[in-house]
Simulated scan of single mutants.
Amino acid sequence: MERKHVDLSLPSAARMYDWLLGGSNNYEVDRAACELLLEVAPTSRELALNNRWFLQRVVRVLAEEHGIKQFIDFGSGLPTQRNVHQIAQEADPASRVVYVDNDPVVLALGQSLLDENDNTTILPVDMTDTDTIFGHPDFTRLIDLTRPVAALFVSVLHCLPDSAGPKALVDRVIDKLVPGSFVVVCQLVSDDRKVRDDVTELMQTQTGGHWGRVREKADVEETFERLLVEEPGLVDVTDWRPDSELQQRQRSVEWTEFGGLGKVRSRERTPGDGGRGLPDESPRE
């Protein structure tokens, strides 16, 4: 894999997230940016931790309750404890996971951890470049698109500007998935316009424009228009099927991760079907 140059003069969202989770794969520039972020949104560390626990819970549910054995993690970020492949392969060692990220530090660390796992890989591709992703040899080696797949967009679409078409990206992925597949989406949102504007401005400035914006709940809801939303619906991810241990965790206040789990329909909505589509016709394991 070709190694890209790491620009240490700019923070990256992936390394900032790593620092907020208590990781060590970050630099002084990332830590300084996080300190600025905490001045604007003091509970950002709680937000990051709650989001990570949500990722672990939803992968476990997909693997254990829905029998999903193929996962695509878009904008996967830096590897940390309890990654997608670890949870999925606990449920079934044959589970296959494709991570997608083009951050050079993510690629270097991720590939070194995955080299010994034949059922897992990381693609050095921009997550919006779906043609390259779905046509990549490592993707086609691991993922069978005639079988159900889980596509994960966890805490990543807010990194895309509106011009990159976050909803269009999700729709392109849905188009590739068979009925019975699942899509996970959560994004940073806030009901407070000042928080949205202040955090967006800070992240845009700190990352040199490599960021999107803090959005509203309606923006997240739009990404589920073609999906059947699973219980408990679209919520602050802290409330998405929390484990008893997590119920006592501190919540973020200024902003939240909002989203949930959606199932790919057997067909598009038509007038008179109540938006439910036809019964699933996906192949069964």
Rank of each mutant, 00 (worst) to 15 (best):
H5W: 04
S9P: 00
S9L: 12
L10A: 04
M16C: 11
W19G: 00
W19D: 13
Y27S: 02
Y27P: 10
L36W: 03
E39S: 13
P42A: 12
P42S: 11
T43E: 14
T43H: 14
R45H: 04
L47P: 01
L47T: 02
A48R: 05
N50F: 01
F54C: 04
Q56M: 11
V61Y: 13
E64C: 07
E65V: 00
G67E: 06
F71C: 01
F71L: 00
G77P: 06
G77S: 12
Q81M: 09
R82H: 15
V84A: 06
H85K: 04
Q89D: 06
Q89M: 10
E90V: 02
R96L: 04
V97M: 03
V97W: 05
T128M: 02
H136E: 04
P137K: 10
D138M: 07
T140H: 04
T146K: 15
T146H: 13
R147G: 01
A150F: 11
L152R: 05
V154R: 00
S155V: 08
L157G: 08
L160N: 08
A164W: 01
G165C: 08
G165Y: 07
A168I: 06
L169V: 12
S181T: 02
V183F: 07
V184T: 11
V195R: 01
D197C: 02
M203S: 03
Q204I: 00
Q204N: 15
H210G: 00
G212K: 05
V214C: 12
R215K: 12
E216N: 06
K217M: 14
E221K: 13
E222M: 11
T223S: 15
E225Y: 08
E230K: 13
G233M: 04
V237K: 05
D239M: 09
E245V: 14
L246W: 14
Q247V: 14
G262M: 10
S266P: 00
R269G: 09
R269Q: 13
T270I: 15
P271K: 08
G274W: 10
G275A: 09
G275L: 11
R276H: 12
L278V: 10
E281N: 12
S282A: 15
S282P: 00
